[in-house]
Write a protein that binds this DNA or RNA. Structure first.
Ligand SMILES: [Zn+2]
Ligand SMILES: [Zn+2]
Ligand SMILES: [Zn+2]
Ligand SMILES: [Zn+2]
Lengths: 161, 161
DNA sequence: TCAAGTTATGTTATTGTATAACACTTTTTT
DNA sequence: AAAAAAGTGTTATACAATAACATAACTTGA
């Protein structure tokens, strides 16, 4: 089996990840006639500071630090809600945290590999998972609305150490 | 594909689900020389009152109602921790809720089908999912520690209506 | 059997996560 | 410009989980 360590686990030009995410968000919002307001863009940018899922309260603190005034939870949660709705970010249920979607323009389900060592979470290919989930649900007569797959373990980089 | 609606979604003799769970829990605890105290058994029984995942605070309220005195969170969380440790219950991350394991004596990963209509959650067969997850992780060079699969949708009973 | 050690539960306080309700401002529409 | 809609601010509160320490109950081994 060919091993393909996720980009996020390798050292890479991360600024281009951020730039691409902001550009894509702009395109999507323009296309859908919804507003990528300064606050929403700022939250998205904060989330994209790394490939590690970020909690709502961490985002709150970063916003407060950046603007030098208090930011209340609803402000953050509304921005998160918007970003989730347009699939610009995903929620990692097992961590109560949020992470940027690297391909918001391609509709897809998000399956995650999460390293418990370095904290990086990466979306993993649907190749095997999507059909397995479809078959599992079908065999039980279930209609799928949404799905959450979170695989916790150690990423290739952390395994080496 | 043969359709096999989960037992939990059909009308069935649920008392026998409860009895079986308590019996199995007793066997397991005896075998491992750990104590299924009255509190732990009571919490397990409450969780088994239905096939719907139950939140910690709901359990707290039910305990308080049953004993007519206040029960504090740690009391419940410690019981939950014990039951989780021995795999007598599972946690549903997307709901912050807990559900009984129907086969605690067979070691297995727990994959869930959750009906957003009636609230019932059922463990689904690992047949397709386990190898798909293994392949996905292997192809990314990940070492798996733990996994969480939660498929949200509509169960066969709710689809009919 | 009784003291010592261990395990379990009680209690109070606090931290972390998320939403409700209402006020105010900005943007869009007519 | 007025009305409507969308977004943000603010306060309060609900829900989820843990920390720290006190007390009670069981186990163990002289
Ligand atoms: Zn990057
Ligand atoms: Zn790692
Ligand atoms: Zn049943
Ligand atoms: Zn249902």
């Amino acid at each position: 089996m060919p091993q393909q360590p996720p980009l996020a686990c390798q050292s890479h030009d991360h600024q281009s990840c951020i730039d691409a995410a902001i550009l894509a968000a702009g395109r999507i919002c323009r296309e859908r006639s919804v507003r990528l307001t300064p606050l929403r863009q700022q939250v998205l940018t904060l989330i994209w500071q790394s490939h590690k899922p970020l909690g709502a309260y961490a985002i709150m603190d970063m916003l407060a630090a950046a603007t030098t005034r208090r930011i209340a939870p609803p402000t953050v949660y509304r921005a998160l809600e918007f970003l989730l709705e347009h699939k610009l970010i995903h929620r990692i249920n097992s961590l109560n945290a949020y992470i940027g979607c690297p391909e918001p323009e391609n509709q897809h389900h998000s399956y995650f590999l999460i390293c418990s060592d370095c904290g990086i979470a990466t979306e993993c290919p649907a190749k095997y998972l999507a059909p397995a989930i479809a078959k599992t649900a079908a065999s039980a007569g279930f209609d799928i609305d949404d799905q959450s797959v979170e695989i916790i373990g150690r990423c290739p980089s952390c395994r080496k150490r």
